[in-house]
Design a protein around this nucleic acid. Structure first.
Lengths: 151, 151
DNA sequence: ACTACATTGTGTAGTACCTTCACGACATGA
DNA sequence: TCATGTCGTGAAGGTACTACACAATGTAGT
């Protein structure tokens, strides 16, 4: 009602933000020879070696899928499979040197994202933005969690 | 520096927003028997029938991929292939009645998203949010478009 | 110690999304 | 008409997922 048809709505803006964020991260992953799924798995390994079962839970995917993702990361040399010290069924997924280096640069990139995103905002604008985002996220989260149980 | 380790950073908030938006839309698509890729294709058909070549350009995917997506939507009965009036090579992808109905509800859902997202904000908060999002999006867009040509 | 049950990872099979390459059908301009 | 480009699709292949089945192993219960 208040703007022309070519002006993006607030919903448009939020959706574009989501698209741009995805694209930016995907481009970053591709530069490292990673896919999105493998990058997510690697990100979980920040906390140290974990079993494939734990990875499946953390990523909310099936154990079978983790097998495939780990296969890929082993092929590219970022992780290795090691025997679990006490459970001979389980496999510990550990970072190789290359994987550790890559993960370090990913953590740095995450930190640099703050300036990239918010470098154009004043302190006050950033504070207000955070407040509004908290409210928006709370509403969205409630909706998503509700719909998760009522398909 | 200013908050505890368990408080989400501004980057965390933006990333969570993106994740939640994706999840919400995906759940909505699933309810309609749609996948994300097929929903995007359907969304392009808002403007009327288009050729598969135009769809490939609009979706930024290969023409071969469009063939598969249209196959799926034909199987579920949401679109149909029609001959192009002047170009016998081309295929016009058109909405069926079911597809048209579905698209209408998708458009309605898009409109309702405004209240879902911003119903908890005051007029002033929403204005400020839009201003900040415009700034953030501009910076991100510049970065993504720059990296698109320099891998 | 032996049995019963649960858990871990993976082979098999299948779906969806995406790509490149090759090719036939068709359009277009010289 | 003839060369050249365009449209859609078959063939082949990669990645991300799923469900199901199964062997190896861990964990109780008796």
């Amino acid at each position: 009602m208040s703007q022309g048809a070519d002006t993006p709505t607030a919903v448009d803006q939020v959706l574009e933000l989501a698209v741009l964020l995805n694209r930016d991260m995907q481009l970053s992953f591709e530069r490292d020879g990673l896919t999105e799924a493998r990058a997510r798995l690697l990100w979980v390994l920040r906390g140290g070696p974990v079993t494939q079962r734990e990875l499946a839970d953390a990523l909310a995917v099936t154990p079978r899928n983790v097998t495939g993702l780990v296969d890929g990361l082993v092929a590219t040399g970022y992780v290795a499979r090691a025997p679990h010290p006490t459970d001979r069924r389980a496999v510990l997924v550990t970072l190789t040197d290359a994987g550790s280096t890559l993960l370090t640069s990913m953590v740095e990139g995450y930190a640099e994202m703050h300036d990239l995103l918010f470098g154009g905002l004043s302190e006050r604008q950033l504070r207000d933005l955070r407040r509004s985002l908290a409210i928006v996220n709370d509403r969205l989260r409630a909706r998503v969690e509700q719909d998760w149980g009522a398909p």
